[in-house]
Design a protein around this nucleic acid. Structure first.
Length: 108
DNA sequence: CTATTGACCTTCT
DNA sequence: GAGAAGGCCAATA
């Protein structure tokens, strides 16, 4: 592990995502100061895959699509978890209009 | 050690 | 407004 700083923040923010709320890679990356390094954010979650302390299922792409569902235990697990938290879905994408969460809005 | 791929996004043409 | 290319960081081969 080289620069855990970025990873650390990503995992941290992911843990700070409130239930029933979802965020995107770009927002996290940008919030950490790396707007163009959204890919690395995915890698951070990849390391956190299987880690109960990091709800990676609350992190989706900019379109709200469950891009990482294939990396979960089951392709449907991600959607199941989000639905269980009260997140509404539009076909295969999350209703960002209702559940989009910003790393800056740690208030609620 | 170099090259390629990967849970993506931004910007130029 | 739509399409294509580039970029960034890390891991795997």
């Amino acid at each position: 592990m080289a620069s855990n700083d970025f990873f650390r923040k990503v995992l941290l923010v992911t843990q700070l995502i409130p239930p029933g709320r979802v965020t995107t890679y770009g927002l996290i990356a940008k919030s950490l100061g790396m707007a163009s390094s959204a890919r690395t954010v995915g890698w951070a979650l990849n390391q956190a895959a299987g880690d109960v302390t990091v709800p990676a299922h609350r992190v989706v792409n900019r379109l709200g699509e469950l891009s990482g569902k294939a990396h979960f235990a089951t392709p449907t697990l991600m959607r199941e978890l989000l639905e269980a938290e009260g997140v509404t879905f539009i076909n295969e994408a999350v209703n960002l209009k209702e559940h989009l969460w910003y790393p800056s809005e740690l208030e609620d």
